[in-house]
Simulated scan of single mutants.
Amino acid sequence: MTALDRFAALDNPFPPDEELPVGCTADGTPYYEGDEIVTLNGEVYFYDNLDVDTILTALGIAAHTAIREI
C-alpha cells in the first residue's frame, strides 16, 4: 500500500488489513513500513513533521525570551 492509498483510507472506518502499522508516533499516529521516522528520547516522530519546538521539547530543552536587565 502506498502513502496515497493510506491517505485515501483515512476516511474509511474500515481500512484495508493488507498492511498493518509498524508502530505509533508520540501523538498516537500509526506509521507503516517505509515511513521516515526519527526517535528522540524513546519517542517516535515522523521526519517531515519535526520542527524546532518539537525537537527542543522532546529533548527537554526550554526556550527563553531574552530581556534586558536593568
Rank of each mutant, 00 (worst) to 15 (best):
M1E: 05
T2C: 05
L4K: 09
D5H: 06
D5S: 07
D5E: 10
F7Q: 12
A9C: 01
A9N: 02
L10N: 04
L10S: 06
L10T: 05
N12K: 02
P13T: 05
F14Y: 11
P15K: 08
P15H: 04
P16E: 09
P16M: 05
P16Y: 09
E18A: 12
L20D: 07
P21N: 04
P21G: 03
V22P: 00
V22G: 00
V22S: 06
V22Y: 09
G23A: 08
C24D: 06
T25N: 01
A26W: 02
G28D: 02
G28L: 06
P30K: 05
P30R: 04
Y31K: 06
G34T: 02
G34C: 02
G34A: 04
G34S: 04
D35A: 05
E36P: 01
I37P: 03
I37F: 06
V38D: 00
V38F: 00
T39D: 01
E43P: 02
E43C: 15
E43M: 14
E43Y: 11
V44N: 06
Y45R: 08
Y45M: 09
Y47L: 11
Y47C: 08
N49D: 14
N49C: 12
D51T: 07
D53T: 08
T54K: 14
T54G: 08
L56C: 12
L56A: 13
T57L: 15
T57W: 09
A58L: 08
A58I: 13
A58R: 05
L59Y: 13
L59H: 12
G60A: 07
A62S: 15
A62C: 12
A62I: 13
A63V: 14
A63E: 15
H64P: 00
T65F: 15
T65N: 12
T65M: 09
A66Y: 14
A66T: 07
A66C: 14
I67H: 14
I67G: 14
I67T: 15
R68V: 15
E69I: 11
I70P: 09
I70D: 12
I70T: 14
